[in-house]
Each structure stands twice: as C-alpha cells, then as structure tokens.
Amino acid sequence: MPARRILIAAVIAALSLITACSGGGGAGGTAAPLPSGAELVKKSAEAARAAKSVTFSMETEGTPPVQVKKASGRLTGTGDADGTLQVDVLGTLQEISFVLLGETVHFKGATGGFQKMSRSQLAAIYDPSAILDPDRGVVQLLGTAQNPKTHAAETLDGADVYRVTATLSQQVLATMVPGIAQNVDATLWMDRATARLIKADLPLTGGKVIVGFGDYDVPVKITAPAG
C-alpha cells in the first residue's frame, strides 16, 4: 500500500509539471513573438520626434568621465527647460538650479540668488534642449543605433516595456551628455504601447550613465524666476 501511494503521488507530480510547462494547455501559454530591434528603434525615434514635452533624469554610477553627475527637470518641445544639475567642479559636487528660456539661462547655486548665462554656456556643461531636438537628440540617437536587438518583454517601474540592446553613436550621445568619448553598447527600455524611450543604461569606462524619460506630452510651462 505505501508503494502504491508513492506511485500515485509521482504520477500526480508529473502531470502537474506537464500542465505548468504547457501553460495550462490554453492559447495564453504561447508567448507573443518579440518585435525586431530595428522595428522598435525606428518606432521609438518617430515617437520622440512627435513629443511635445518630457521630464528627464540622468545619474551616474561609479566614476564615468562626465562632468554632470546628476540631472533632472522638465523640457518643452521648443527647447525651454527647468531643473537641477549636480556638477563636478575640480572634484567638488556643486548643485545648480536652472531655468532655460529662449537664449537666456537663469541659474543659481546652493546659496545666493539667480544669475544669467547664455544657452551656449549652459550647453557646454549640459544641454537638456538637445533631448527633443530632432537634429541632435533622441531621434538621431535611435536613428543611428547599430545592431539593435530585442531581448525581452518585461515590466519596468510598473510600465510594460521591451528591453533592447544597441550600439549608440558617441557623436550624438555627447550632445546630450558632454564628456562621452566612445560609442556605447547600451540597454534601452521602450514602452510597449507607445514605443517611447523610458530608460537608457550607458556603460562607460569607470562606470555608467543612466538616463530616464517620462510624462511625455504633459503640459509644461517654463517661467523665469522672480527677481
């Protein structure tokens, strides 16, 4: 009798394993094929070209050779932006708040009031307006991506995304993150429904840069600081 019970238990376990592996025998057990990497980067570039606004973030891990260690803010399709930067100045991290309106940048450090610089002066440090510029930013970055390959459909911070790897151009990357001096074998995450770029992981010598995008097309109004 004990041997019979053992045999029955083994049969039940085997049947359970077969059912689990077959996804229950229904249509839901077959994973949908992944879109090609080339198709995804093309769609993502088109989505970036159509974007009217976006929030952005950038942070570093380790010691990659870039001056800006952290950034976050809001950006309109016309290139106006506001946010904060954390910049390495001779080995010391300096926090800078900025408001970019037209050709004028209002900026301030941790103490004191706002001062002014030109857009080109800010661009030498970090140029958020490049992100949605179709001739310099994400559109060009994805349009020139080499060997894109889709690896998985997964979830990232609650969003359904595709994970893609591709080699990105140093020339285009450097317009958005000054200091990058090499092509980058990047990992990209793109929203499954809209194809919009959500995150980019950029490994560099000494560390990495992680870039994030969100709140696409949410209305943004950039105003000059008082005084």
Rank of each mutant, 00 (worst) to 15 (best):
A186C: 04
T223V: 11
P134L: 11
A153K: 15
A47K: 11
A9H: 03
S120T: 15
E46N: 10
L100Q: 13
V209H: 06
D135Y: 01
A20G: 02
F114Q: 03
P203I: 09
I18T: 11
T187S: 12
N147D: 15
G29C: 10
T223E: 15
V87P: 07
G227D: 03
T175C: 01
A50Q: 15
G23I: 05
M58D: 04
A193V: 05
V161F: 04
T76C: 08
E154F: 00
S16Y: 00
Y162L: 09
K149F: 01
A38H: 10
P64V: 06
G77R: 10
G29V: 08
L34I: 02
G23V: 02
A224W: 07
L141E: 07
Y126D: 09
A145H: 03
K108Q: 13
A45L: 05
P225M: 05
G206D: 02
A145N: 06
R192K: 15
W189D: 12
A193L: 12
A124I: 00
L40P: 05
Q121A: 15
L188M: 15
I198T: 04
V211Q: 09
G79C: 09
T76A: 02
G37E: 14
T167M: 02
R192W: 02
G214A: 12
S44M: 14
P2I: 05
T92N: 12
G227T: 02
T30G: 01
L142N: 10
L34G: 04
L204I: 03
S22K: 08
T30L: 08
R119L: 11
K43E: 15
L197N: 05
M190L: 15
E154P: 00
H106L: 05
V68Y: 04
V211K: 05
V209P: 01
Q170Y: 01
Q146I: 03
Q170N: 13
P2R: 11
K199N: 10
T155L: 03
D88H: 07
Q67R: 14
A50P: 04
Q115N: 13
P65K: 13
V87W: 08
P65A: 12
A226E: 13
I198D: 07
A48I: 11
G207L: 02
P35I: 06
V139M: 03
S57F: 02
S44N: 09
P203T: 01
G24R: 11
T63N: 14
N183W: 07
M58P: 04
D160Q: 15
M176A: 10
G91A: 11
R119W: 02
V66M: 11
G227Y: 01
D215N: 14
G212I: 01
G91M: 06
D215T: 05
V89E: 12
D201V: 14
Q94T: 12
Q67H: 00
L85Q: 04
A174P: 00
L202R: 12
T144V: 00
D217K: 09
A14Q: 00
